[in-house]
């Protein structure tokens, strides 16, 4: 039996003590503000900690007649612990890490901030109406061997992997731990089934489906969903400044026409249809075809914030019906 237990008090005190080193996501804070210290540093999304909305890669300066390039290296004492929900953790571990932390060509900015940060996953007691994590291989109790897992259980926290990583002294209660495991297993059985086997391949075969046109109609092509998505990692490199300036690494979005616009003014994704299709395909076909995991964790944030109720779950379910016809 892997899981042990700690008291609310223990977790609370630990977080108070490590305060400057602990960051919590807004969604985790909202869910567990009654159990955790209220004034932890919060971030809107987990990804922005590692994949900054913007950062300078290097500075260029014209000195006399030569250009001098100085790499920007951040030396910040960065938080060591990130408290987040299972879907947010899955997004980091199985999507953004996979993209940025490749061995041959690591994205150094991301890697520097990411290394040495321990993820503390707090499982979900309650499932929101926008959640659909069970469709994409996630669950309210999704755990990962490299991360700590906490789950509120009858006045205590169920804890996995926290003994060493957080130096907490948990107590054992095999019977209670068994009850937790059973609860997890039973709850998962009640959740919607995962997407069909080989959905990425099947969806890819429906690239030219006329349904895309219909589904894209009311999307306004803003970047809200991509920017607040925990997995969306597309970025741009741009310059800021003439004779001296910075080369910037900034968030970018496949929803913007400029994202793929050629200098010749040709655009391979000229309308909303192509861009919406790219967003869905990238998450549900291209990314899993390359990296085995879905590029969506089913957190439902995009469904919640979309100004026109463009709903990725609905679209994916529509495509499931289409591919299974």
């Amino acid at each position: 039996m892997k899981g042990k237990f700690v008291t609310h008090e223990q977790v609370f005190t630990w977080m108070e003590r490590e305060r400057g080193l602990v960051v919590i996501t807004e969604r985790a804070q909202k869910k567990y503000h009654h159990l955790l210290p209220s004034h932890l540093i919060t971030v809107k999304t987990a990804k922005e900690l590692f994949f900054s909305p913007w950062e300078a890669v290097y500075r260029y300066t014209l000195q006399g007649k030569t250009w001098v390039i100085e790499e920007k290296v951040e030396h910040s004492s960065f938080p060591s612990f990130l408290v987040l929900l299972p879907c947010e953790a899955k997004a980091i571990l199985e999507v953004t890490d996979v993209n940025f932390m490749t061995e041959d060509t690591p994205d150094l900015g991301y890697a520097r901030r990411r290394r040495g940060v321990t993820l503390i996953i707090v499982g979900c007691e309650r499932i929101e109406q926008t959640c659909f994590c069970s469709l994409v291989g996630c669950s309210p109790f999704w755990r990962h061997r490299e991360s700590v897992f906490l789950f509120p259980w009858k006045g205590h926290f169920y804890l996995e992997d926290g003994e060493e990583k957080l130096s907490l002294s948990p107590f054992e209660d095999p019977q209670k731990a068994q009850a937790v495991e059973t609860f997890f297993a039973e709850t998962i059985c009640t959740l919607p089934l995962p997407l069909p086997a080989n959905f990425p391949e099947k969806l890819y075969a429906h690239f030219d489906d006329p349904l895309w046109q219909k589904m894209a109609w009311h999307c306004v092509n803003c970047g809200a969903c991509t920017y607040l998505c925990p997995t969306c990692y597309c970025f741009d490199l741009s310059v800021d400044g003439k004779l001296r300036g910075l080369t910037l690494h900034t968030w970018d979005s496949c929803m913007f026409p400029k994202f793929t616009l050629h200098a010749s003014s040709h655009n391979p994704r000229p309308t909303g249809k192509e861009r919406v299709r790219q967003r869905v395909m990238h998450k549900f076909s291209y990314f899993p075809l390359r990296n085995k995991y879905y590029g969506c964790v089913g957190c439902g944030v995009c469904r919640e914030i979309c100004p026109v109720n463009w709903d990725i779950k609905e679209v994916v379910e529509g495509m499931v019906r289409q591919v299974e016809r």
């Binding site: 940025f100 990692y233 597309c234 490199l237 496949c254 793929t260 200098a263």
Partner: peptide, 19 residues
Amino acid sequence: LEMRMKCGVGKCGRCNIGP
């Protein structure tokens, strides 16, 4: 093929054709 490319190493996400 030609595409708008930024990073050059398959990370920035814009130059894909399918996967």
